[in-house]
Design a protein around this nucleic acid. Structure first.
Lengths: 251, 251
DNA sequence: TTGACTTCGATACATACGGCATATATGTAT
DNA sequence: ATACATATATGCCGTATGTATCGAAGTCAA
């Protein structure tokens, strides 16, 4: 607490303990971009918006919007989901903040990225609006977290605008990391599901097969599953039991 | 791609596919706050700056600064560490972005939080400047991620300015989560260390004792450790082998 | 009705790993 | 030299996961 004189002020840094008034400083555009993820048919899918203006005209971007004055970041992300995908009440979590000076050629934009998880039905409904969906092809081998390849229904590459490929890559990485300690797989399924369906979702996210019996045992032992007593229908083999996510009610 | 008319525009949202020019939108102050963490004497410690002006005068804040026009977020965090703690070359990673409208009573500030890890020696050197250090007391039981209690050397509570207690809590939570799958414990130690020292660091971060033998086996089997061949000195018992972090050179 | 077929779901067993106890090694202090 | 403290190695055991096998429960076709 003694007021020692500052020795050799580090490289002209002068705001050390200085009073700073936020309004004096540079101000930035703040955007929120959302990676809406679904898992079906063995692939991850994400919602994209085609850009019909410069920059990155003809490419695709993540749904996003600029932060408004009186809303929280999460409210902005919720608003983006509602306005661009007609979705409400979905799992939503902050992902990472991207702020490279050159990421938007027009002006500097700080983008707070969120990711959201929905089941196949809600994803398809959201995709029926004027937006476009893209399949995320993630390299199974090697590190994930860098840019990923996003393709359309026919497998053609969909180049992403800005640094959105990095954002998608980061979303996949985060999702994989959370899968085995957070109840996140359920978010990608409907109200009820069979154990095999849950397994397929996990395999899709992880990008590798998982052992069936171990997976079943682990899930049943986790206490997160609740048997409905009802069985699958419409299959030409023995129907599986339908489960639902146990919302911490029991136990 | 067909230009369908928008059906029942969701609640007056009008920026759907609309051209948006970032410069038209609200602009915000963007700050970077850094949780500088060290682990010694059984506690986590973090660097704090006493505030001598309103708001939160008399309380303590995390070292931080406002983002400048041409620097990246990480560069800003690096600059904060250099200018306020005289530290360079430390482990630094983005933590979370806090943007509640009321978090700074003066004006709205979006804060991108980072956390940095240093060993005891560098932390003490940083703490000898005009800044203050606080011990992080984290409740061992229950959830972590919310606000934590930060105390001074004498155990008195140090109230934190703004939402900085939440930021510290989030840093602890992140650190715990990363501990067993990322080589993050080494960042909290010096160049060489004994296995017991590494164990103490893990215990401090996790807030619970870990099994000695299992820990030793796991660490040695991880391939992240490299024996130096030298032994501890200055202890009045059998000295332990000194290890260093293996930087992916071998294997 | 019956049998082939498919998937579900249970059981048994081998293996890997962490928690735990104990024994031995290797240094310092007296 | 002896006592002592800690490091380090080894074995045991309970638990969780990987793997193989088998009966159960449906559909479908003859």
């Amino acid at each position: 607490m003694s007021k020692k004189p500052r020795e050799s002020a580090a490289e002209g840094e002068s705001e050390f303990l200085a009073s700073y008034d936020p309004s004096k400083y540079e101000r930035f555009s703040v955007a929120v971009d959302v990676v809406l993820v679904a898992a079906f048919e063995g692939d991850l899918s994400t919602l994209l918006v085609p850009r019909d203006e410069h920059p990155f005209k003809g490419q695709h971007a993540l749904p996003g919007g600029f932060l408004r004055k009186d809303e929280t970041l999460e409210e902005a992300a919720t608003r983006v989901l509602r306005s661009k995908a007609n979705l409400t009440g979905v799992f939503l979590e902050q992902l990472y903040t991207f702020g490279e000076p050159g990421r938007d050629p027009r002006t500097r934009v700080i983008s707070v990225a969120y990711y959201a998880l929905v089941d196949e039905a809600r994803f398809r409904a959201a995709g029926e609006r004027a937006v476009r969906t893209g399949r995320i092809r993630v390299p199974w081998e090697g590190e994930t977290g860098g840019p990923v390849k996003v393709v359309d229904e026919k497998g053609r590459a969909l180049p992403l605008a800005f640094d959105h490929a990095d954002i998608v890559g980061m979303a996949v990485k985060r999702l994989r990391g959370k899968l085995d300690y957070a109840p996140v797989g359920f978010q990608l399924l409907g109200e009820t599901f069979t154990l095999l369906e849950l397994q397929r979702v996990h395999e899709t996210v992880l990008g590798r097969p998982v052992n069936k019996d171990s997976f079943r045992r682990r899930m049943l032992a986790s206490g997160q599953l609740e048997a409905t007593g009802r069985a699958q229908s419409g299959v030409d083999h023995r129907p599986a039991e339908l489960y639902r996510f146990a919302r911490r009610s029991a136990v």
